[in-house]
Simulated assay, not measured.
Amino acid sequence: MSDKRFWEAMDDVRAAMLSIGSARHVPMSPYPEADRNRMWFIGAAGTDLVEALDAGQSDGSLIVTGADHVYARIEGRASLSSDRGKLEDLWNPVASSWFDGIDDPDIRLIEFIPSEAEIWETTNSIGFMVEMAKSKMTGDTPDMGDHYTVRF
């Protein structure tokens, strides 16, 4: 998968599991920005992710499952951003459900810059069934798609 295909797949992701430093993985909505090789998240003060960033931890991990039959483990670095323009660009009904408006003092904008992604690209459910049936008839291992790494 090329960087381009990776970013196209990320455009279809609505939720993924983000971890930063010692903070456990939690579901977050990623907002990819392919032309700048980064993803954004709208977080909240007091959460484990933001507390890890406040404590100086920055190593991040993002787990993506099932977006366009793409599964990925993405490693990178995270930081807090005060970019009000970016927050305004990202603001949407999902974000507004978690906060008291865009000026809520608890909002924390998280910038995630990936360095490497390990990717599994699989067939759709029909393709999966065909591969399972074929493997039973031939005794061969089913072809479940491609597995590779993208470095940014």
Rank of each mutant, 00 (worst) to 15 (best):
G60V: 07
M137A: 13
R24D: 12
A117F: 06
A67D: 04
W91Q: 07
E118P: 01
E111Y: 03
A44P: 10
I107M: 09
I113V: 15
A52P: 02
V64C: 06
D54F: 11
T47N: 07
E131F: 08
A45G: 13
D59T: 13
K134N: 07
R73H: 14
I107S: 07
E118K: 15
D140K: 11
H25W: 04
N124Q: 09
L80R: 00
R77L: 10
P30F: 02
S135L: 14
S97N: 11
G56W: 10
G139Y: 13
L49P: 07
V26W: 01
A72H: 02
I20F: 02
L109A: 07
P27S: 09
A45M: 14
A117M: 07
I107A: 06
P30H: 03
W98F: 15
G21N: 03
G56N: 12
S61P: 00
L87Q: 04
W98D: 11
D59C: 10
R36A: 15
M137G: 06
S135G: 13
K86T: 09
L87E: 03
G85W: 10
L53H: 00
S79P: 00
I110Y: 03
G43L: 04
M137Y: 11
E111I: 02
N92S: 12
I119G: 00
S22Y: 00
R73P: 03
M132Y: 08
W40F: 08
G101Q: 11
I110G: 00
E121R: 09
M132L: 14
G43P: 06
S96R: 13
M137H: 09
S79R: 09
N92G: 05
E118V: 15
D83G: 05
I102Y: 03
D104P: 00
A23K: 04
E116W: 11
S115R: 12
L109P: 01
S97P: 05
A52R: 01
E33S: 10
D106T: 13
H25R: 02
M129A: 11
D106P: 00
W91H: 06
M137Q: 12
K86G: 01
G139P: 10
R84C: 12
S19C: 06
L90P: 02
F99E: 03
L87H: 04
L62K: 03
G85F: 06
W40D: 01
L90C: 06
I119E: 01
H69F: 14
S61Y: 09
A95P: 05
S115F: 09
D140H: 12
Q57P: 02
D54I: 13
S97H: 11
W120G: 04
T138M: 10
A133P: 05
V26H: 02
L109Q: 03
A44Q: 14
S115A: 14
Y71H: 10
R77D: 13
P32D: 06
S81E: 04
D100H: 12
M28S: 04
S82Y: 08
V26C: 03
Q57K: 09
Q57T: 06
L62D: 02
L53F: 06
V26I: 08
D54V: 14
F128C: 10
P114R: 03
P27W: 09
A78V: 05
G101I: 15
